[in-house]
Nucleic acid binder design. Structure first.
Lengths: 227, 227
DNA sequence: TAATTGTGAAGCATATTTGCGGCAGATACC
DNA sequence: GGTATCTGCCGCAAATATGCTTCACAATTA
C-alpha cells in the first residue's frame, strides 16, 4: 500500500464501496475494511499514507482505534481523518484530542471527500503536475532541469527517453499502451511503429541500470513504471 | 407501465395466470399476453422495466421476439428473462447470444422467479465504464493498472485471463456462453474452439485461489461470476 | 557530420489453443 | 427406481501462435 495507499474503515458496506470506488477512480490505492480489528492489523502491516476512519464501528470503537494508532510510534505519523455523523460533535472533539488530523461529517459529498484526501496527501499527490519533481526510491526526475538523477548520479538520457520515463513515472503502477506513450511524447497521431517505443524502452532500461527493472513490460498491453 | 412494469409473454394460460397473480401480489404491475405479435406491440408502446419471455410460442418464436427487441434501440435496454423448458439448452444459448439477459428453466418455483425478477429490476442501469475499478468482496479489479488484487495481494494474470475475469465480473450473476466470452475478449468471430475458454477459466480459477470458486460453471450454457 | 530516432527481421520467451482421456451430471430406458 | 448411455466439463501436455527484445542499418534532425 505504501505512502500512496488509503485505508478506509467503515462498517456501512454501501458507503464503503462508494468511497472506495471513487478514490480508486482518482488513482489512489484503497483498502476498505469493515472491522476495527482488521483495520489495526492492516494499518500496522501496510502503513498506509492516510486513514479514513468511521467513528461508529461494530467491534472496536473508532476513537479507540485512533488512540491506539496515535500512541504507537510506528503508526503515529499516519494522518487520520474521521468520518462522523452529524450530531456527534463530542466525538469529533474527543477524536481530535486523541490525535486525529481532520474530520468529515456525514453525509458528505464525494467531491469534498476527495478534495480533503488530496489535501492531506498533498505532499505526495497521486498524479503529479507536469513540472513537480518526482522521486521514486533513489531516483529523481527534475522536469525543471530536465534531468534524471539516480543516487546523486546524473543519468544521460535523450529527449525521447526522458519524456517516456517522465510520462510513465508520473503515474507509477498504471499501464500505458505503446500508442498512448507515443501520443504523450510526440503528440497525437505521430506516425511511428510500436517498435519504436520498444527500442526507446530498451535504451532507457540500459541507461537506468538497476533501476531499469522498474519499467515493466505488460504483455499484450504496453509498459508500466512500477514503484 | 414504466420502469416498474413487467411484460409477461407465455402461451400456457395456467402458467400465465399463476405468474401474473404472484407478481401482482408482490406489488409489480404485470401485463400478461399470449401472443408474440401483441407482446411486440406492448413492449414498444409501454416500454416495461422487464420482459419475461416464454421461448415456445404459437405465432412468433420467442427467440425472434428477443432479437427484434434487442435490435431496436428503443427497447434494447429492457432486460429480457427467458422462460424455457429444461433440456432446451440450445435455445438458452441462442437466446443469450441474441441479447437476452437471463433465463429460468421450467418448471420453476414462484419463489425463484420472484427473486430473479427482483434482482433484475434492482440492478442499476449503471453502465460501468470499461475502466472503472470493480470490487467484489475483497477482490479488486483495477483496469487502469491492469491488475487484480485479492487481499492486497497482486494476482498475476495473463492478458486473456484478465480480460475474461473482467468481462465476467462486470456483471456478476449473469451467465455468458463461451462464444460470448470469446467475442468479448478477442472480438467477434474470432475462430477458436470453446475448449479454449475452458482452459482459460481453469487457469483463472487456479490463480484466484479461494476466489476461484466465484467462477461458476453453468452446465450446458457457459460460465458466470457469482458474487 | 554526429547524434538521435525509426524500421524490419530474427530469435526467444510466453501465452494460447487444441486434442484426448477421464469423470460426473443428466437423460433415457427398462 | 435403478441402471445404461449420452453429453459436457476438466486436467494435462503437445503444438501453435503471439508478442517482446535485440540488432543492424536507414532516415531524420540539429
Amino acid at each position: 500500500m505504501s505512502r500512496e495507499g488509503i485505508l478506509l474503515i467503515e462498517d456501512d458496506k454501501d458507503i464503503l464501496e462508494l468511497v472506495e470506488y471513487n478514490l480508486s477512480k482518482e488513482g489512489y490505492q484503497v483498502k476498505g475494511v469493515v472491522s476495527g480489528e482488521e483495520a489495526l492489523r492492516i494499518a500496522r502491516s501496510q502503513l498506509p499514507g492516510l486513514i479514513l476512519l468511521d467513528i461508529m464501528l461494530p467491534d472496536l470503537d473508532g476513537l479507540e482505534i485512533c488512540k491506539i494508532l496515535k500512541n504507537d510510534p510506528k503508526t503515529s505519523h499516519i494522518p487520520i481523518v474521521m468520518l462522523t455523523a452529524k450530531g456527534e460533535e463530542s466525538d469529533i472533539v474527543a477524536g481530535l484530542e486523541l490525535g486525529a488530523d481532520d474530520y468529515i461529517t456525514k453525509p458528505f459529498s464525494i467531491k469534498v471527500l476527495i478534495a480533503r484526501v488530496r489535501t492531506v496527501l498533498r505532499r505526495k499527490p497521486s498524479v503529479t503536475g507536469d513540472d513537480s519533481p518526482i522521486r521514486i526510491g533513489n531516483m529523481q526526475i527534475h522536469p525543471g532541469r530536465h534531468e534524471v538523477m539516480i543516487d546523486e548520479e546524473r543519468v544521460d538520457l535523450t529527449l525521447t527517453e526522458y519524456r517516456i520515463l517522465h510520462f510513465l513515472a508520473r503515474r507509477p503502477g498504471w499501464v500505458f499502451t505503446r500508442s498512448q506513450i507515443v501520443n504523450a511524447v510526440r503528440g497525437d497521431d505521430y506516425p511511428v511503429t510500436d517498435r519504436s517505443v520498444d527500442v526507446q524502452i530498451a535504451g532507457l532500461r540500459k541507461k537506468l541500470g538497476p533501476f531499469g527493472s522498474h519499467i515493466e513490460t505488460v504483455r499484450g498491453i504496453g509498459y508500466r513504471f512500477k514503484e
